[in-house]
Amino acid sequence: MKNYMKLEIAAISENESFARSAVAAFALNLNPSLSELSDIKTAVSEAVTNCIVHAYKGKRSPENKIFIDCRAEAEQGEGVLHIDVTDFGCGIENLDEAMQPFFTTLSPNERAGMGFTIMQAFTNSFSARSVKGEGTTISMIKKIGAGGKEELNA
């Protein structure tokens, strides 16, 4: 089975819950376990939040858009979900530095700097492409294993 889904949303925080729930709903065909679903939601939420608060700096302009591209593949009960989250915002000058745990360019009083660390820990593959002044694409792959099947058959 091969499936895909494309989502274009305004970069406003009202859409965060919708975006992570939409990706989770799309993933349901792969029979994920509850913990796999929760990992997917969290990773998507991190990527989408970063577009809103960093890429577009919280500016609520109709031009500020987030694109979410998902592809699902299933073979003999093993599923793979590809998630790409793209913005055309400010871009990241130094990706290595941005990826460091606890690194944040916003106030460390209210921000943990853990978004990238969480995306990496909650997915099976993670990569980022960014060009300063042009935008960023985060690509994540989540494998949906036998855990989901067991839960469904239980």
Partner: peptide, 15 residues
């Protein structure tokens, strides 16, 4: 549900 924003929220209240 909680993401890293929740961690930031807890750190802020802790301080």
């Amino acid at each position: 549900f909680m993401d890293s924003t929740g961690i930031g929220f807890l750190i802020g209240r802790y301080k």
